[in-house]
Design a protein around this nucleic acid. Structure first.
Length: 541
RNA sequence: GCGCCCGUAGCUCAGUUGGAUAGAGCGCGGGACUUCUAAUCCUGAGGCCGCAGGUUCGAAUCCUGCCGGGCGCACCA
């Protein structure tokens, strides 16, 4: 059963399907129930009209004063308008970015960062306790490669001429790392065997890379609470394995050969396996390699085991599209570890295609010459990057065109929303410049046309809850576009009819009421932008 | 071969968890500036919601099967 604003505004302010849902259990005709309900509801003071429509819909029209009161509520709540208690008592861990600490962030990481961060803010606004987390993959072979690459730069910093072999990280960003290592260790590791320097170089270099990444995230206004190191898992891996073993979900076995492309180096070997198939996965998954060392998956299981131990009521992971195949096994592991009590929601974030005036931006991985996040933020600004990343559902591919996203026109949603806010801010200034002395706003001066705007602004709390429930922050961006459109439309009525303007010379009372209307809309726009981490512009240039 | 995601206007996409006559933007046609910033707005044309069944008062939405596109199928990280 639902009670919600209907798509078609001629169907009133609220519509409910209650009569149709109740018809079967009540053994009555839907329309008969609807008529009965309508008669009762018509006596509710806030309800102006209750009409039965179609197969048994009940359309409710609220009295205009309800909307006037809502405008007052927006004003009173201010930045808290729309804040919800739906998440009260629940704590969610949102893990996002988790880029490998082998270099600065590039645009491949950007969308997950923005969507994850906006989701975290959204959940917080909806009343959930939220932890923003980053998993540092600092335990694999790639980190050894990073350390070796840094060692080359270290020798370079000490005066050697180096050549970077194939398979090493060639990026310039390691030059200052080499200098830092040279300053720290002097020349004592120049000719030393790798075994002497690999571990310290790995630790230091990862730390410096994480500084780099944190700085990149700050450019987007992202600050995470927890940075969890894979290398620090230690005994947790065994503990997680023991937890699963205690549930009878671990066994020694041999997996079947992978289907599809036949792996030429595959051979059947006994391993320690997790019964992922019991939890909906396609295959059981290896926890230990045949030589007894842990798999990457085992580490990830231990990591999620740790998150569960920290007592969250729900977990959210943001994955890149290329990790889609990993979702089932991770979900299976969390189901097993938590006895199905703590849900893991894995959000897939699709690729971003970078364009410049319609032409794909060329990227060469080999030279390390990828488009960095810092470059993009510098070129178009944080707000544009953040907003554009939310202009599509995150599970479908997104085009990011450098030319289009800075365009000041209707088809640029960032500009469009900010322009609406700037207009709202400008009318207040205009009234002040005109030397108008405004009385306190009397909402009674607002008519149905004005109140139509309030109705849309009043949807904000619902939008927050819906977006939080579906964990889809893009809904915020779309709503703000709708609200801005309604505002612009209202604004232009003033072209034909001066009485519909916000500032009306000679009528301070109506001006005050209209400015209050604009103020309410502006407040909601600011609140929405705040949730997605975008600044509200007071004027545009 | 198997799994996951996706197919909505010419293009790019929404679609209130199953509601009423499926909506925006761009593009195309027509219109509104002695203005509170026209950086905007109004209006018209444009649809078998991939196809075929099913579930029910009711389906773009849920189920099944096809067709078409993307991603993934390690003891890698």
């Amino acid at each position: 059963m639902t009670v919600e604003p209907p798509r078609d505004p001629t169907h009133g302010d609220l519509a409910t399907n209650a009569a149709m849902v109740l018809a079967k259990p009540a053994g009555l005709k839907p329309r008969d129930i609807a008529v009965m309900l309508a008669q009762k509801l018509a006596r509710v003071p806030e309800i102006e009209a209750a009409e039965v429509a179609g197969p048994g819909f009940l359309n409710l029209t609220l009295r205009p004063d309800v909307w006037r009161a809502e405008l007052a509520a927006i004003d009173a709540a201010g930045a808290d308008y729309g804040r919800s208690t739906m998440g009260a008592g629940q704590s969610v861990n949102v893990e996002y970015v988790s880029a490998n600490p082998t270099g600065p962030m590039h645009m491949g990481h950007c969308r997950g960062a923005v969507v994850g961060d906006a989701l975290a803010s959204l959940l917080a606004f909806a009343g959930f306790g939220v932890t923003r987390e980053y998993y540092i993959n600092d335990a694999g072979g790639q980190v050894d490669t990073l350390a070796r690459s840094a060692h080359l730069r270290y020798r370079e910093a000490l005066g050697e001429t180096i050549e970077i072999p194939e398979g090493f990280y060639p990026g310039d960003y390691l030059v200052p790392v080499g200098q830092a290592l040279a300053a720290e260790f002097g020349d004592r590791f120049v000719g030393a065997p790798e075994a002497d320097w690999l571990a310290p170089f790995r630790t230091r270099t990862v730390a410096l890379m994480m500084d780099l990444i944190r700085a990149d995230l700050m450019l987007l206004g992202i600050r995470q609470d927890v940075f969890f190191s894979e290398a620090s898992l230690g005994p947790r891996v065994q503990q997680a394995l023991d937890t699963l073993a205690a549930k009878g979900l671990i066994y020694q076995g041999v997996l079947e050969a992978p289907k599809g492309e036949t792996a030429d180096d595959w051979e059947a070997r006994p391993q320690t396996l997790f019964k992922a198939t019991q939890f909906g996965d396609d295959s059981d998954r290896a926890m230990q390699k045949s030589d007894g060392s842990w798999t990457y998956f085992a580490g990830d299981v231990a990591y999620h085991w740790d998150k569960l131990a920290r007592g969250y009521t729900a977990l959210v992971d943001m994955f890149g599209a290329d990790h889609g195949g990993y979702v089932k096994r991770m979900t299976a592991a969390v189901r097993a570890l938590s006895d199905d009590k703590v849900p893991l929601d894995v959000k897939i974030v699709q690729m971003v295609k970078l364009l410049r005036a319609g032409e794909p931006v060329k990227m060469s991985k080999r030279s390390g010459n990828f488009v960095t996040l810092a470059d993009v933020v510098e070129e178009v600004g944080k707000d544009v990057v953040r907003f554009i990343m939310l202009t599509k559902r995150s599970d479908s591919q997104l085009d990011f065109d450098f030319a289009k996203v800075v365009e000041q026109s209707r088809d640029n949603p960032v500009f469009y929303v900010q322009y609406a806010h700037a207009r709202i801010m400008s009318v207040g200034r205009k009234a002040a410049e005109a030397g108008m002395v405004l009385p306190p706003a009397d909402y009674a001066r607002l008519d149905d046309t004005d109140l139509a705007l309030v109705k849309l602004a009043a949807q904000w709390p619902r939008i927050v809850e819906q977006a939080a429930a579906t964990r889809e922050p893009h809904r915020i961006a779309f709503y703000l576009g709708d609200l801005a459109a309604a505002f612009h439309s209202q604004w232009n009525l003033g072209n034909d009819d001066p009485q519909r303007r916000f500032v009306i010379a000679g009528d301070p009372a109506l001006t005050a009421a209209r400015l209050a209307l604009g103020g309410g809309v502006g407040q909601v726009i600011r609140n929405g932008l705040a949730v997605i981490g975008v600044e509200a512009a007071d004027e545009l240039h």
